[in-house]
Design a protein around this nucleic acid. Structure first.
Lengths: 298, 298
DNA sequence: TATATTCATGACTATTACTCATGCATTTGG
DNA sequence: CCAAATGCATGAGTAATAGTCATGAATATA
């Protein structure tokens, strides 16, 4: 039944629709912002395509034929559906634009989220969804637009661009420093040490950087999230090696004191990870903003 | 919710549909018989109209975004509906074309219908509907395309064009003529006369055309349909004044004998009546055919 | 590494949509 | 009844859209 018959143009269908509604080419032209001549031609075009007389020309007026009436009913309906389809797509594009972001848990909590208010103010119509993830994952699978990644320059299926290095420092609370005065770097190794499980080598690396220190590193407490390490350090439980990005507030307030820089030496960095293909404008804008936040210190 | 957002062109929607189906502009172009470049432009146009990215460009390929997927589903559906709408209109125009004809009852029975087979052979796909009507009526109201009218040049709301004059003759059966030999016109008036009620003046008019005839006209039998008059005349019941068009068969076979011509004098004619406005091609064709039949005598 | 493939885009051509002017047939108003 | 107004159709021409050809960039493949 359905054959390879070309669909008339939207212009033709709209002219027919308006002429059917008004039973007048002139009134239809007014409604459409065209000339009567234009409408007349389009309707004639449609009559030729359909192979039927759709309007009876009576005197100076027109009247729908039975064939015209039947077609008009269907065309009204079809055009209305199309309008709804397009309107909804446009509305979806305007109001439900979503940017999905992933980051390491503590980085998300302590660095990213407190700053997102600034980005949100720049883009009020953009909804944000933030995931915390510790390991690389399939960005496309989860529909993530941007991930802030720490580690090696290696995330299969993603495009990585460097964000910044990780600045590590040894910190301790003022209370701990009173009980364990530090005049040289090696004094730090006599303190209780707080360890991040996934970064167990950090104290070894620090130890290697101290001339004349023996090969022994104090055992201490172990934690699997930097946020826990931070809390323990603030409470005076021990000295910790932490990324400065995560403790900007504590350093500023004096809750933690920076004692010495640490060089990781593993070559790990912060990166921005994006799915293959071109970035959406929102994602591109977010990347620009993040870079600005990194270079702007409190 | 529905705003005055322009509907994209059919060309744009078809390119999007095909690209969504194939997830490839090149394959879509092949299916549509266009170039990749053309499809790329139309999809880009749609993305700009909608204000959303519909395809993610990945390497050398494309993948529908979520927004693209949603829109594709709706567009498939809407285009399918439109195709059906147009196909059905075209099919209706091809197979259900109908020509509605009206004529006087006896004229329809004895002249028109026996000849319609010829017209039907010329137009096999045209369905015919025949009404018998004795008086003028609203052609548009009944949806009648053509009426064969006998009478004055006066049918409100219809266009009349002359078809032919009515040829009237006095006829009698051979049996009646044996019982009532006719050597002069005036001898006819001594026969039993058959009267058509709606044409009661005809015998008077005939009588007036006979020099020296007295003012008296024989009463006789009256009938309200020419077909009854014809039947009565054939049975020898009396002499009748009949239109030749209605008794072509009887004159040819000798069932009725023509005795004398009759001049009506009222100026009545056969006309073709059509509704206001332009004739459909079928109606115009029918008119041409009828004129040919009138000028062609058996 | 060389070759093939696919999308994007500049420059250009072809086609469609539309305008302006006019004619014809009618409707309307005086 | 006649002049003016109205509305559809159509010729000639213009503007806008649809589409092609050629080319470049980025990738995928052998």
């Amino acid at each position: 039944m359905e054959r390879d018959i070309p669909i008339p143009s939207i212009s033709v269908l709209r002219c027919f629709e308006a002429a059917a509604k008004h039973q007048s080419f002139t009134a239809a032209a007014e409604e459409l912002g065209l000339t009567q001549s234009g409408v007349s031609r389009q309707v004639k075009e449609l009559e030729e395509q359909i192979g039927a007389t759709l309007f009876r020309r009576e005197g100076r007026g027109i009247r729908l034929t039975q064939a015209g009436k039947s077609l008009a009913d269907s065309v009204f309906s079809d055009l209305s559906r199309l309008r709804r389809t397009i309107s909804q797509a446009v509305a979806a594009g305007e109001t439900q634009e979503l940017l999905t972001i992933a980051a390491l848990p503590t980085f998300a909590t302590r660095w990213l989220v407190p700053r997102l208010k600034d980005f949100k103010e720049k883009r009020p119509n953009l909804d944000l969804m933030v995931y915390s993830r510790s390991e690389p994952f399939d960005l496309v699978e989860l529909g993530v637009d941007v991930a802030i990644h720490f580690g090696a320059n290696d995330w299969p299926g993603a495009k990585l661009s460097p964000l910044c290095p990780e600045d590590l420092v040894v910190v301790a609370s003022p209370a701990l420093l009173e009980a364990h005065p530090v005049t040289e770097k090696s004094d730090i190794l006599e303190m209780p040490l707080l360890h991040m499980t996934s970064r167990a080598h950090l104290w070894k690396a620090f130890h290697k950087g101290i001339p004349g220190a023996d090969g022994h590193v104090q055992m201490g407490s172990y934690f699997d999230q930097f946020s826990l390490v931070i809390a323990a350090a603030v409470s005076g439980m021990g000295a910790a090696i932490l990324p400065t990005y995560l403790i900007e507030t504590e350093l500023a307030s004096g809750a933690l004191v920076s004692l010495a820089p640490v060089r990781d030496g593993s070559g790990h960095n912060y990166y921005l990870a994006t799915p293959p293909g071109k970035l959406s404008p929102s994602a591109a804008e977010f990347l620009t903003w993040v870079r600005g936040q990194v270079s702007r210190r409190v």
